[in-house]
């Protein structure tokens, strides 16, 4: 499936990646645990009270998060490290981060500028990031797609989508 000739640089990147993942999990677990204790101190720790499950979940996440960290450092899981290295080698990170940023911008402009323009622009941008260079085709698809979705959802299904800038036109 994937090339097995992975060099040491890639391997160390995989190793680093798994460690960052472990750190993120532990950080998340800490946040959960912190809030869980706050909930429990207000509502009680007992099994009938709202704090019981949050505390269990927080402890579970923390425990297994630390176990995972151990498996990436002191007692490494070599299969995982190799797989992570392969995945890292196959991932074009700049594309990933660009798309994520694009998604967030898309979410924020959806309401102010409206569904159709926001979606058409988002579609074009992501297709370009994904490597498409056929502008004419992409513009046609993006516009048709967003217009069709907008009318299908608002007129047929009765779902409200933001009209935004189009409000003046429609």
């Amino acid at each position: 499936m994937i090339d097995s000739n992975i060099d040491s640089a890639q391997l160390s990147r995989g190793k680093l990646g798994t460690r960052i993942a472990a750190a993120v999990i532990i950080l998340g677990a800490a946040v959960v645990l912190f809030d869980a204790f706050r909930i429990a101190s207000e509502g009680g720790f007992g099994p009938q009270q709202p704090g019981f499950f949050p505390v269990i979940v927080g402890i579970g996440l923390m425990g297994f998060g630390i176990a995972f960290l151990v498996r990436t450092t002191l007692k490494p899981d070599y299969d995982l490290r190799e797989q992570a290295a392969e995945e890292h080698a196959d991932t074009h990170w700049r594309t990933l981060w660009t798309v994520i940023v694009g998604l967030v911008i898309y979410a924020y402009v959806l309401e102010p500028i409206g569904y159709i323009p926001a979606t058409a622009i988002f579609f074009l941008a992501i297709a370009w990031v994904g490597g498409s260079r056929k502008w004419i085709r992409d513009i046609i698809v993006a516009v048709l797609f967003s217009v069709a979705v907008y009318f299908f959802f608002t007129e047929v299904l009765g779902v409200r989508l933001p009209a935004g800038l189009m409000e003046m036109v429609l």
């Binding site: 898309y106 297709a127 994904g130 498409s132 698809v141 959802f153």
Partner: peptide, 28 residues
């Protein structure tokens, strides 16, 4: 083309969430 396909899946995903919640927070 794959790049259009994945873009389409993203758009549909966001659309699905927006239509059940109608809020920016859920989209994020």
């Amino acid at each position: 083309p794959k790049e259009l396909l994945y873009t389409g899946i993203l758009v549909f995903g966001i659309l699905g969430v927006y239509s059940i919640s109608g809020s920016l927070v859920e989209v994020l």
